[in-house]
Amino acid sequence: MSRSGNAASRLAQARGAFLGTRSRFRAFLSHAASTLVSPHYRGARWITALILILFVTQLLTGTLLSLYYHPDPASAHESTHFIIDNVPTGWLVRSIHAWSADLLLILVVAHLLLVFLRRAYARPREYQWVVGVLLLVFTIAFRFTGRLLPWDEAGHAATLAGLNLLEEVPILGDAAAQWLMGGDAFGAKSLGRFYTTHALILPWLVVFLVAVHVYLLLRHGLKGGDR
């Protein structure tokens, strides 16, 4: 009797713990939903939703492209040709990846502008703004590092011109350009560096920063106490 009573008690405790976890999870979801889909600031909300959708699109299409792409100067151009001509819907995936990168950059700037005009960066959301500006920098870096990867003449020239500009920025510019080039000059190592930055380093950094950005949003809510 006592043994079965203990078992029943343990079962009840386990069930309580499970339900408690689910309850907290539901509470979190409910809180997140009520913050993220606030009835205020509709424009900003839709821009934010589109940014997230485009970012996921970038991750998905980028992953698909990386299945066939070779980050090596000898075969990068041929592998891009192969994606366009031989991989089923490869041309479409590449095209969506390229266009959504441009749209993403435009929408991130638009989002930042709306936050600026509403002064939504003011206390207590200072660090949310700082993380947002970092995300803008990384979005630009995404776009810049991706342009070299097809290894065609236009991308090559645009990248060289961009690196020359970067080198002219004091303190950080030269170090950033050297890191991207993999040395003092643009060479065979550079494509590998660009690919690693574009496909490995930046995605993790951006996912982490988006998580911090959303966490801060949930913590402080939207400006105006409209939760």
């Binding site: 097809p150 290894w151 065609d152 003449e153 020239a157 011109a161």
Partner: peptide, 26 residues
């Protein structure tokens, strides 16, 4: 995608051609 597909130019060489475009819009 349908009306303005991103093109793929010739394979990059060590020195870009003189008429190559400069930096990108952003």
């Amino acid at each position: 995608t349908a009306f303005f597909p991103p093109g793929l130019g010739d394979r990059a060489t060590a020195t870009p051609p003189a008429d190559a475009p400069s930096v990108e819009w952003y």
